[in-house]
Design a protein around this nucleic acid. Sequence first.
DNA 1: GCCAACGTTGGC
DNA 2: GCCAACGTTGGC
Length: 142
Amino acid sequence: MAAFLFKTEPSEYSFADLQRAVKGRWDGVSNATAHIHLRAVKPGDLIYIYHTGQERAIVGTARALSDAYADPAHDTGARTAKGEIKFPVIDLKALAACKKPLTLTGMKADPRFADFALLRLSRLSVMPVPAALAAVIDGLTR
DNA sequence: GCCAACGTTGGC
DNA sequence: GCCAACGTTGGC
C-alpha cells in the first residue's frame, strides 16, 4: 500500500466536505506532474489531506477507492502523447480527522521532512508520501 | 525548438 | 497584498 498527499483549498473543498460526501471524487487536478502521481494511486492506498490557505496543515486521512479513471466532466477518451488518461480522477472516502493536525510550520521545523515534495515544490497538489514519512506523520497526528 | 511574456498557485 | 516558483502560451 502506497501513501499520497492531496492538497485542497478548504474554502473550495475541505476534509469535512469529503467526510459528508461518503464517497468523493478527487477532480480538478490540472498540473501535469500531479497527474503523474494521481495515475499511480491504487485502491486501498492511504491519502493524507492537506489544507492550503489559512490552515496549512495535514488535517485528515482518506482511502483510495479506485484506480485513476477519466473524468466524466471532460473528454473521457482524451489521452496524453504517452497514451495515458489526460484528465485523471480517483474516488476516495474519508477515514479520520487528525487528532492533532500537522502544520506546515511543524514539518518545516522537522528535518525528517526536509526532502518532502510538499516543502520543496510548493505548487504541487498531488504527491507521493514515502512509507517512512507516512509513519512519522501518523505518529505526529495521532 | 527556443525563450520571453504571462498566468497561477500558494506561502509569507 | 506581494512575490517566488514554475507551468503554459505564443512569436519567431
